[in-house]
Amino acid sequence: MSIMEYNGGSVIAMVGKNCVAVASDLRLGNQALTVATNFEKVFPITDRIYLGMSGLATDVTTLRETFRYRVNMYTIKEERDIEPEAFAHLVSSTLYERRFGPFFIEPVIAGLSKTSSGAFRPYIAGADLIGCLNFAKDFVVAGTASEKMFGVAEGLWEPDLEPEDLFETISQTLLNSVDRDAYSGWGAIVHVITPEQVITRTLKARMD
């Protein structure tokens, strides 16, 4: 029994043209027993950054609270919103603080970062449970269906997808992956972040 698979669950993030998307399934389990089917694993950090976490559910909740606190402190001190690059390193150092007694989660960060010209550039990153960052240009995955998501995303994803096409791509990737995973599923939630707005949709899925 692996601690990372105790509660089940999967998250994924993808880059599009001037937009990013991040999604998770909704299952919370105790090994094979499903306890809740409304357990979201993606949380808003700022208007343009979302953080997804898969792994041990207690640590997902604890770290959500930790990151809310630390981002609030950052905002007060700096008098501005945190940028995705800085937030990714905040996540990394928070996890590395517990190097020898880690939080059992794998984070996925998705956001739009402001460039010097005032435009927005899509940004995604993933990390392992001790905070080793992975800056991907296409997509990052984490959780019990991660292998499946690697396979499907590698087949479906293409560069420069518009928000609606990116939504379809990430949704199909997640849905078809969790349908082959006993520990993930029971619905999904998808956020597509564009410079103008964040589109959030809850998806129905197979319930087996």
């Binding site: 292998e147 690697f150 396979g151 499907v152 087949g155 949704s171 078809n176 992956s177 082959r180 899925a205």
Partner: peptide
């Protein structure tokens, strides 16, 4: 790579989801 390929096939051959 069964776990990478099979869900992709579910989607593209069986039109799942």
């Amino acid at each position: 790579a069964q776990s990478l390929v099979q869900p992709f096939l579910d989607n593209q051959i069986y039109f799942k989801n």
